[in-house]
Simulated assay, not measured.
Amino acid sequence: SWPGRGSVFEVVLPLSETPVAARPAETPRRRSPATDLAGRLVLCVDNDHAILTATRLLLEGWGCTVLAATDAAGATEVLQPLGRTPDMVLLDYHLAGMETGLEVLDSLEAAVGHPLAAALVTADRSEALKAAARARGLPLLHKPLKPAALRALLVQRLAARQVPAA
């Protein structure tokens, strides 16, 4: 529509002589531990600061504790003082220089001594990357990231690992 032009709509409803009783307030549904992301520790690794900020805000809105890094050294540095491993690691594939998210994951897993729950988040849609992710058993989400897809992935992966929230 443009000012002075456009469509006009009208809705006509019958008036009720009897007031409608208010419905009782709904009891809030309890989230099951498998779907509750509150308290989950998520490490995000991406060399794009705007993406890191947006991802942090999204995850914190869901109650997650978020650590952010732009490379393997930064990821190791933010994890060391915690004394615990992240519940999930979200990795961009193409990082600064020639470093990849898979290399960061290898470095982190070597540092903690066990496999980590992780997923690749990338704009790269190549078959080679899809095959590499499949070979590692890593979910692959494509940018631009859909929040519902990320939330579903987190819930599913954390439930599969049965990781209790901290």
Rank of each mutant, 00 (worst) to 15 (best):
M88G: 01
G113N: 10
W62D: 11
P33D: 13
E99M: 13
A68H: 00
L91F: 08
L108S: 05
L140S: 07
R56H: 06
H94K: 12
R151K: 14
W62G: 01
A25C: 04
P86W: 03
L129G: 09
P33T: 02
L52P: 05
R30A: 14
D71C: 09
P33W: 11
A68M: 10
D71G: 02
R5I: 09
P28R: 12
P19V: 12
E17F: 07
A110M: 09
A119W: 04
A96G: 14
L105E: 00
K130T: 08
L82S: 08
L13P: 00
L13S: 12
S1D: 14
Q162E: 13
V66Q: 06
K146P: 00
L150G: 03
D36K: 03
R134N: 09
P19A: 12
H142P: 01
L138M: 13
R125Y: 00
V155K: 03
E109W: 01
E99D: 03
S1G: 15
K143Q: 12
A34D: 14
L57A: 15
R161W: 11
A135N: 13
V11S: 02
R23F: 05
T70K: 07
W2Q: 14
L140C: 12
D36T: 00
C44K: 03
C44E: 05
R30N: 03
A148N: 09
G39L: 07
S32Q: 12
Q80G: 02
T18G: 06
P24D: 13
G137V: 10
A111R: 14
R134K: 10
E10P: 00
N47L: 01
H114T: 05
A165Q: 06
A110D: 14
T27Y: 06
F9E: 15
L150F: 01
G6V: 01
D48H: 07
P81H: 06
D36Y: 05
A111Y: 00
V12Q: 08
A72N: 08
W2P: 08
L58C: 00
A119N: 04
V112E: 08
G137H: 04
E26R: 15
G63F: 06
A123C: 03
E103A: 15
G97E: 05
P139E: 13
L57H: 11
L37Q: 02
I51E: 07
R161A: 15
R125G: 05
L13V: 14
V121R: 00
R161Y: 00
S7E: 14
A160V: 02
L37H: 05
Q156A: 15
L79G: 01
A75E: 02
V163Q: 13
G101H: 07
T35H: 07
D36V: 02
H94I: 09
R136M: 06
A131F: 02
A160Y: 02
L138Y: 08
T100H: 08
V78S: 08
L58T: 00
L59W: 02
P14L: 04
V104C: 06
T76E: 14
E109I: 04
L59P: 04
G101K: 09
S16K: 09
N47C: 14
L108R: 02
T122L: 10
E109G: 01
P144L: 10
A117R: 12
P86Q: 04
V20D: 08
L105N: 04
L102Q: 07
L140G: 07
G6N: 06
